[in-house]
Design a protein around this nucleic acid. Structure first.
Lengths: 360, 360
DNA sequence: ATGAAAGCGCTAACAG
DNA sequence: CTGTTAGCGCTTTCAT
């Protein structure tokens, strides 16, 4: 097949050979210049760059990938939601990946997807990636009817998982986490510190590891102070589920403080509480999780914590790239994410009659 | 370079030739099977598939791309925000792209990025894509100090732009839009229909075409009924900016109805109004835009419109893929997005003294 | 410091 | 229906 230069005189994309010819060097030298390899005289480099600019040359990535065996791209598995947390994490990952010079491929799993995360990973592997990020893992073990609904994938690239063990073996598995457990512990302690006897918990779906982390932090905080652990109420992250939970919680006079696993649920919860005649924060304190953009502007402004998505993504991607480029080196250590509690008006000491902290 | 089969006996990834050998056919036949080409006997196809499965064969995409000149991937330029609208659009695009069998590459521009959208497009072209989606275009012309801050890119693939003309030439430019103008017109008419003399508008940043569309729809609705067009107030999509605008608007007794360009701003606005002693909806009606998950649960529940992100993404991607695969055919026509007004409790007729519609 | 030759694993014509 | 022959545009040895 002779190279068609048709299209009415518009020539096809120039190749490195064309640049080489124009610059009067070998094709290999062009390659050297574009890969920033050593041993190219400044003079030659300049000529090559000029020729390339004149021709509008850009390297063909497919050819590069084929010849080198590396795709220079990283795949990320996300959840198909516009929820603030997952969306923020994805943005953080995109930026971090871009900073490293890799390209980003995205696949999302929808909850209830039969092939799930494994299917998404598989499709990423099909596309060709040098590393994979699983940004919001959920536990799919209880999915189908039987236990064997797993698509077993043979992953041969490093994987970064945010907050959970991956359901498959990989040459190198790195963990990252926003430190949600620590964050959850901090908000629970904030409530306890205000004098509440215990703290109720409106959790996220426990299939999500992100939800489990928060629940674990809440539990740890209660246990550390020997407090009674009320039954956990499970929502689905939505304000609607927070509202539903709120209607139940409102009936229980023992409820004076609630930790909601995200801001949306906290907002629905507050609405239900208010409608039931329980004032926030006078009768019941509520804390959220995420510090979404509206958190400061709802009524009452929400006490919440901010998750360090950007910092965590940056750190995680740095380690992933290290693992990709140094297959046999030890993985880099993860850095500790910061904790950022934002106290606003939805939390206060418990109503006078119920504050027994003074009696101790 | 002899093919290293090292790694302790774990052989390297199998190639189509290996499959061919095992199945006792030619390499080309394997290729035929995997491309679902016609003219392969069921018997041979079965043998090939079995051999491939046994070896764990998967096609090398780099090689495919190199040989065919097509990358089978689509790039999307997004804005680096977790704002509900852009995030939802991205999710819609991801799903739509996946359904077509293409892979998705993502790049985001941060506002204030010196290279802007052109830079993002350029990086996508570097990576190698067959088509590009610009999901939330903003007008960057006023960016730098001078006018010539443009990175001129030579785009040679079809481009789908959601809501604005692209700042560069491309062989095929398709437009998509959620019909924000029509949506905005509908909410404005809803307010007018309630009896308000006019409707104020808390707009999004006018650099965003998405914001301009809404403003245009608002204007059109007012003009159609010969209403006075109050000066537009510009926010930045955040609840904080809605709050700031609300403090000003609260002082003006003529304000009885406000159309906010997104729900977040509406929430901030309502807070400011309420703090200033103006009740919503008794004194002032407020409508939002997006129907974010919390809209139904804030106080008062927000009247808003839902943008048909999924439908629009699906339609747009379908047309983009058509343009990619049929370079010289006429582009497919866009389908009309649906309009979905959701009336809740933040809108009501104007206070009695101000409702003059009955006097006409 | 530079160049020549040899593939990477596929798809694309063209034969049979 | 199936096989043969050429590349796609680079990176990689290995020579200078």
């Amino acid at each position: 097949m002779a190279r068609e230069t048709g299209r009415g005189g518009t020539s096809a994309a120039p190749r490195s050979m064309d640049v080489a010819r124009l610059a009067g060097v070998s094709q290999k030298t062009v390659s050297r210049v574009f890969n920033n390899e050593a041993y190219v005289s400044a003079e030659v480099r300049g000529r090559v760059l000029a020729a390339a600019a004149e021709l509008g040359y850009r390297r063909n990535n497919a050819a590069r990938a084929l010849a080198s065996g590396r795709t220079r791209s990283i795949g990320v598995v996300t959840l198909g939601t516009a929820l603030y947390g997952p969306a923020s994490l994805l943005m953080g990952v995109e930026r971090a990946v871009r900073d490293t010079g890799y390209a980003l491929r995205v696949v999302n799993t929808v909850e209830g997807d039969p092939t799930g995360i494994a299917g998404a990973v598989d499709s990423l592997l099909d596309q060709g990636v040098d590393g994979i990020v699983i940004s919001e893992p959920i536990d799919e073990s209880g999915d189908g009817d039987g236990a064997g609904s797993e698509v077993s994938v043979h992953v041969d690239v490093p994987v970064l998982v945010c907050g959970a063990p991956p359901p498959f073996a990989a040459p190198k598995v790195l963990a990252a986490g926003v430190g949600a457990d620590q964050l959850a512990r901090t908000v629970t302690e904030h409530l306890l510190g205000l004098g509440h006897l215990t703290v109720h918990h409106l959790a996220g779906p426990q299939r999500w590891y992100a939800a489990r982390d928060r629940s674990a932090g809440w539990r740890a905080a209660l246990a550390a102070q020997d407090r009674r652990e009320p039954p956990l109420v499970e929502g689905d992250w939505s304000a609607a589920s927070g509202y539903a939970a709120g209607r139940e919680l409102a009936c229980d006079p023992d409820v004076t403080a609630v930790f909601a696993a995200n801001d949306d649920m906290a907002i629905g919860l507050i609405r239900a509480l208010t409608e039931a005649g329980r004032r926030v924060p006078d009768d019941v304190s509520v804390v959220g999780f995420d510090d979404t953009p509206v958190a400061a502007y709802v009524t009452p402004p929400l006490t919440t914590v901010r998750q360090p998505f950007d910092a965590v993504a940056q750190d995680g991607i740095k380690r992933l790239v290290h693992a990709i480029e140094n297959p046999r080196a030890d993985p880099l250590a993860a850095s500790e994410p910061p904790v950022d509690l934002i106290v606003r008006a939805s939390t206060a000491p418990p109503p006078a009659g119920r504050d027994t902290s003074a009696h101790h």
